[in-house]
């Protein structure tokens, strides 16, 4: 009986982990600009990893390896938001404009405009991937809703 409950819990946790990671993947692919993507990257993903590692811990039971799982979770909870913060801070520092709902530009357009407005300083080694019109991947508008 206990075994069955545990198995059910494990399956539930794995499913939840998959769900939240799916959300974060969808977010990273769908959302319109770097700031909004950073949201999902740090948070939905943190919860996804949380459930996933919870499932691992459950299946291990009382073991030293379980403590490792808890440590993994602890580190992910600390480092992931920091990474998101660092990334969005870099974007902000570089002057990439945040997207607004009344803005119908694609993220690429937004990024290029930020550059053209001189917000991205000269001499930067920022990724200037936005120069080539005819060679853009066709999915260019995919992130634009």
């Amino acid at each position: 009986m206990i075994e069955a409950i545990r198995t059910a819990l494990i399956v539930g946790c794995v499913l939840a982990a998959l769900f939240f990671t799916l959300v974060s993947t969808a977010g990273v692919l769908r959302l319109p600009d770097i700031y909004t993507r950073a949201h999902t990257a740090s948070q939905a993903d943190t919860l996804g990893a949380g459930f996933g590692l919870a499932a691992v811990a459950l299946s291990l039971g009382w073991e030293t390896a379980t403590v490792k799982t808890v440590l993994l979770l602890f580190f992910i909870f600390i480092t992931n938001p920091t990474a998101a913060h660092a990334i969005s801070r870099a974007a902000d520092e570089q002057g990439i404009e945040p997207w607004r709902p009344d803005d119908d530009r694609s993220d690429l357009r937004l990024y290029r405009d930020s550059q053209e407005n001189g917000h991205i300083a000269d001499g930067g080694i920022s990724a200037d991937t936005a120069g080539d019109e005819e060679r853009q991947p066709p999915e260019d508008g995919g992130t634009n809703r």
Partner: peptide
């Protein structure tokens, strides 16, 4: 506080400037 805001979905601290926080909200 900044880290808590970042951890909470929908809000993310972009910058800490002195005492004020620049927060992006979804």
């Amino acid at each position: 506080l900044a880290n808590s805001i970042t951890l909470t979905p929908g809000t993310m601290t972009v910058r800490v400037e002195g005492r004020s926080l620049k927060v992006h909200t979804l």
